[in-house]
Design a protein around this nucleic acid. Sequence first.
RNA 1: GCCGGGGUAGCUCAGCGGUAGAGCGCCGGGCUGUUAACCCGGUGGUCGGGGGUUCGAAUCCCCUCCCCGGCGCCA
Length: 427
Amino acid sequence: MKTRRALGLVGEEARVRGWVYRKRDLGGKIFVVVRDSEGVMQVVVDRATAPPEAVRAAEAATIESAVEAWGRVEADPRAPGGAELRAEGFVLHSRAEDFPIKGGEGVDYLLDVRHLWIRSRRLTAVWRLRHVALHAMRRYLDENGWWEVSPPILTQSAVEGGATLFEVNFFGRKAYLSQSAQFYLEALIYSLERVWSLTTSFRAERSRTRRHLYEYWHLETEEAWARMRDSMRVAAELVAAAVRGVLEGASEELSLLGRSTEPLERAARPDYPSITYDEAVELLRRKGVSVEWGDDLGADEERVLTGYFDTPFFVTHFPKHLKSFYMKPDPGRPEVVLGFDLLAPEGYGEVIGGSEREDRYEALLARIREEGLNPDEYRWYLDLRRYGSVPHSGFGLGVDRLVMWIAGLDHIRDSLPFPRFRDRIYP
RNA sequence: GCCGGGGUAGCUCAGCGGUAGAGCGCCGGGCUGUUAACCCGGUGGUCGGGGGUUCGAAUCCCCUCCCCGGCGCCA
């Protein structure tokens, strides 16, 4: 049985198995803290009362050895969790060699032994929290009429800039790892209308920040007939659903991670404020940041802006030249586009980017040419505007960034088990 | 790509021209209740790699590789 259940069986017999988390061998007793997928439990092997073979096994057990123990559960305030197993039997299933992680190691070293580091209680709590957040978002989409679809990862052309593509050899031809499923989702709205996907996206930007991965988990939506505001509402509801899901289903993980729940409670309702790019520039100037209209909002600017809000918030209507060619210009103000970002508070920054898409063939073609892109490469994408084009909008959510904010992590690498960032590809 | 910091024992680091060090870990011993247990003893090194200066280089110089923090780019 799991340690969590065994801890509640005071006065009864229990049997637990797992890995040695801590071991303290005193003269008369051996204390072995056993870790499993649900927590830890202390096993006490008493040299005076336990069978000799159990004592020998406990003596031989090293940190991270796989063990199994059985006996009576007794309440004891000195035991972690308030109860412990008084061993009547103890078996060493597999003795671990000297475990290379003892505590106090540096990040570089720990990343080299990431396959072992991921056993830590802290990281385990993150994976659980992540599961809960993803589950909550999937459930929200499912209950609101969205179809989950499976777009390709191997693609021929870019969605974002071409300089940041990972190239692969496709039987002698060049192909690329997907940066975004957006174009494929756009193709699917003509039959399913509301679609979403969860895929890995790849960006070969040589970023050295704590919020970039080369390979990240991308939750994207696309909806026919939807305007920018419709898409923003979905984005807010999706994030709020994830936050609520974690508050309800991962409260122990939040507390193990030392995460304050106050910012999360404020974000549990999807009524996030929204400002335009123009207003953002105005707010920044008021704080003494020197920005000109048309400048991109960098990390410093984002940080200042997040100081104005204590919930996630939107920034909308960016200057056209700052954003991708597929975003639709505002009909009343063609120098800005109907695009939006959702920024997480507490300095975490951009979690979602979305827009209403350009749905007119000629306008899209003109924008592709304006950007110096080759229209031939976007032929099938342009085709979508030739056969029953409709207004549509969508967004992409960085799952890892959302988890990073919800869990209160100080680096995106710990939002997933084997992060691909910097020059790390091992393990 | 740019700016800054750093590579010395298994790990974290000190040493910064004159015989390679500490703490932790590990191994052995002790201890009837530990919470990263404690006490005693032992173990441990291509000083990231290459070249140079010097009587002598971990230490100074050049090249190179790797790591960390930040910027830009984005999710």
